[in-house]
Amino acid sequence: MTTTPAASLTPAPRLISLDAYRGFTMLAMASGGLGLAEVATHHPDSAVWQEIARQMEHLPWVGCVAWDLIQPSFMFMVGVSMAYSYASRQRRGDSYGQMFRHALFRGIILTLLGVFLRSNHKPETYWTFEDVVSQIGLGYVFLFLLWGRSAKVQFTVAMLVLIGYWALFAFWPLPGTDFDYASAGVDPDWEYNLSGFAAHWNKNTNAAHAFDVWFLNLFPRSTVFQNNGGGYHTLSFIPSLATMIFGLMAGELLRSPRGGGRKFLILVGTGALAMAVGYALDFYDICPIVKRIWTPSWTIYSSGICLLILAAFYGVIDLGGIQFWAWPAVVVGMNSIAIYIMTWLFKGWIRETYQTHLGQEIFNIFGEQYASLVEHMAILLAMWLICLWMYRRKIFLRI
């Protein structure tokens, strides 16, 4: 079987805005929030600092803050990138079979890379699949199967995925009186527990949790898996596939021969609409917005924000031609896998190296209250310089 989208054989200019968006996202992730949440603890009476701290950490359950948007941005851009990368492979003469095998290989490697990174500092392989690259890997082949299809097909599949996942939770029975909340790692009196119909999306009392209790215990582990403390689940790759599909649709739009202004307006209009729909699903108690379990309402709402962010980058960089300010992010955006791996493996070593050669108190240069900010900025600078070195030598880590 072969698929040849109408514009697939027409070369498209490199989307600098995508590199910049990806780079800013990866810099945010690698920064660890710049340690601002810790700085805020030294300013307990400052409403500004407390709000900054709130934006730099994942919410306990329902809602959305800036830090929650890193993962959906990453996954959304996987879809945008696919629209370009496989069109490029097709122009080079790759057959559909070759591209499918590449997608399958990439999916497997990404899935296992997430396991590898999550196993860092563990006594054995830590078989878990909630890491963002594992989630991308699990859905990657399914995303590829939609590449080259019409926007109508892609959108229909995304909606079916979200409706089906909503139904899985909505019709899963609520915990009975004999439910073992302790083994699920849940306090039944937790202040963030939802009530009424929304209780179907409570932490570790849902269908995805039950699946993980079965599935993750199929892998060798020294202790029985009982729960994920953060409420994350393997099956979140299903609704997050819809996030990647929306990204794929956006990528195909940007590759299309439509005028740049029209593309910009479509991105803005669909982004605003998606945010409104996602918010309404939460507001009318149809489905709460919960990033940790990637609820359908979260998928739609966060995808809307991603569309608006992409539109902003596209409008300023590709349409407006104002690119100089984004260069530091482009350097990272073209090596996103590299900085992701460095974030997991090198941050501790970089911190210790600074202290070894510059003194244990080097991060206190502006006082103890700002030490975490200085530390995170110094580590981020070191990783950015590595990316810059790779960029200048045209070394790009790809899977």
Rank of each mutant, 00 (worst) to 15 (best):
L113A: 04
A66I: 15
M75A: 13
F100I: 11
W49S: 00
L69H: 13
T41K: 15
S46Y: 02
H42V: 00
L110K: 01
D68C: 10
Q50E: 04
W61K: 07
I108M: 09
Y96P: 07
G97N: 12
T41F: 05
M56Q: 07
H43P: 01
H42R: 03
G79D: 02
A37E: 13
S81E: 00
P44M: 07
R118N: 09
P44Y: 06
L110V: 01
L113C: 02
G63L: 06
Q98A: 13
L34Q: 03
Q98K: 11
A40M: 04
R89I: 02
I70S: 06
A40H: 03
L112S: 03
V39R: 03
W61I: 07
M82R: 08
H121P: 06
C64W: 10
A66Y: 14
R92S: 07
F100H: 08
H121D: 15
G35A: 07
P60F: 03
N120S: 12
F76Q: 03
V48L: 15
I108Q: 05
R118S: 08
S88K: 14
R101F: 09
H42C: 00
L34H: 03
I70Y: 08
S85D: 01
I108N: 02
H43S: 09
V48A: 15
G97I: 10
A66G: 12
T41R: 15
R92K: 13
A40T: 05
S95N: 12
I108R: 04
S46M: 02
A66N: 12
V115Y: 11
F76N: 01
V48M: 13
P72T: 09
